[in-house]
Design a protein around this nucleic acid. Structure first.
Lengths: 182, 182
DNA sequence: GTTAGTATACCGGCCGGACGGTCTATTAAC
DNA sequence: GTTAATAGACCGTCCGGCCGGTATACTAAC
C-alpha cells in the first residue's frame, strides 16, 4: 500500500475520534490535533464539516464495494454469490469485530447530518437487487444480509455479540441460507 | 410507578427533536422550545444532558421489555417463544413502526455519550439468554433476532427496506426459524 | 384564618467555553 | 515566482450548565 495521501490521514484521524470519543466530539480542532496538523491544514482539504463527513461516507462506500466485488469474484459458485459476498464483507469471523472505520463514518453521518448517508442508501438499493437476483429465494438472501447487518450492529454497539463456537455456527448458518439450503 | 407526566412530555419532545432534526440538534434550548417550556424548567428535571439521554434510554428499555413480555405471555407455544417475541417487538409488519423511541434514544446516546447505552447492553445479554434457551437451535434463534435488528436498522436509516409481499415473506421466514422449522 | 415556613415546579438571563468557519501569513515544491 | 499546503489567530454564534428569583401548594402554629 502506497503512502496514504494526506486526505486519508485526516480521514483516519476523524474516524479515530468518532470511535474513541463519540460522534459529537468530531470537531475540526480535535481532528487536526489527532492528525498532528493544524485546523487550517484540515480546512484546506475539507471546506466544511459536511464535506468531511461526506468524504468519510464516500470512502466507506468505496471500501465496502471493493471488498464486495473481491469476494464475489473469488466465489466459484454463481448461486447466492452476491449474498455470500455481502455476508462475508459485513460479518467479521470472530475476535476482530466489524471494522470501526466504517462504523465511524456511519455514526458521524447520522449524528451530524442524516442526509449525508444518501450515497449509502443508493448502494444498498444496488446490493439488494444483486442479492434478489442471486438464484436463491429472495427472502433467504434477505435474511442472510439482514442478519449480517444485525451482527455488525451487535459488534459495534456491544449488544451481546455472539462469540466462539456459537458465532461460527451462526455464520455457517448464514452461508447455508446463501447457498439456497435454508 | 406512575412517573410524573411532565417528565414524559419532556422526553417526548427530546425524541421528536432527534427524529426530526438529528441527534446533534438535541440541545436544551431546542427541547425546551419543543415542549413549550423553559430551559430552566427542563434543567429542573434533568440536571445534565447525560441525565436527559440516560432517561431516554431507560424509558426505551422499559418499553421494549414490556412489549417483549406481552408478546411472550400471549404466545401459546413454548418452543421459540422468546425468539418470536423479540422478532415481533423489533420488526414492524410494514410501513412505519412505533420505534421512534428506540431510534431517538439510541441515536442520542451514541452521539452524546456511548457509555449511556450500557443499560441496553445489559438487557441484550438477558434477551439473548432467553432466546438461547428457547428450545430451538441457538443459531436459528440468533439469526432470527439479528435479522430483526437488521430490518429495524434498514427501516431506520432507509437502507432499501423491503416492503410489501417480500417483507411479509421475510417476516414469515423469521417466524419459521423461531419455530425451529429452519 | 392568618401567618410563617417549607417543598415542588418552573422561569429566563447569564457566563464561559467550545465550535464552525474566515483570514492572513508562512513554508515547500518545482 | 507561482502554486499547493500548512499554520494559527480570530470572530460570531451556539450550547451546556448555573443561579437568582417566582408561583403554587401544603402544613402547622397561634
Amino acid at each position: 500500500m502506497a503512502r496514504p495521501s494526506r486526505r486519508d490521514v485526516l480521514l483516519d484521524a476523524a474516524e479515530r475520534i468518532v470511535r474513541d470519543k463519540g460522534a459529537n466530539h468530531l470537531t475540526f480542532d480535535a481532528v487536526a490535533a489527532e492528525a498532528n496538523t493544524s485546523k487550517g491544514g484540515l480546512l484546506y482539504h475539507f471546506a466544511s464539516k459536511d464535506e468531511l463527513v461526506a468524504a468519510m461516507v464516500e470512502r466507506l462506500v468505496a471500501s465496502f464495494d471493493g471488498s464486495l466485488n473481491a469476494h464475489a469474484a473469488a466465489d466459484k459458485s454463481a448461486t447466492g454469490r452476491w449474498t455470500r459476498a455481502y455476508v462475508a464483507t459485513t460479518a467479521a469471523p470472530d475476535g476482530r469485530s466489524a471494522d470501526d472505520m466504517t462504523a465511524s463514518a456511519l455514526l458521524a453521518a447520522v449524528a451530524c447530518n442524516p442526509g449525508l448517508i444518501e450515497p449509502l442508501r443508493d448502494r444498498y438499493r444496488v446490493w439488494r437487487e444483486a442479492a434478489a437476483a442471486d438464484g436463491i429465494a429472495p427472502e433467504d438472501a434477505l435474511i442472510a444480509m439482514l442478519a449480517a447487518d444485525g451482527l455488525w450492529i451487535a459488534d459495534l454497539l456491544g449488544f451481546a455479540p455472539p462469540t466462539g463456537e456459537l458465532r461460527a455456527r451462526l455464520i455457517e448458518r448464514m452461508g447455508q441460507l446463501a447457498r439456497g439450503a435454508g
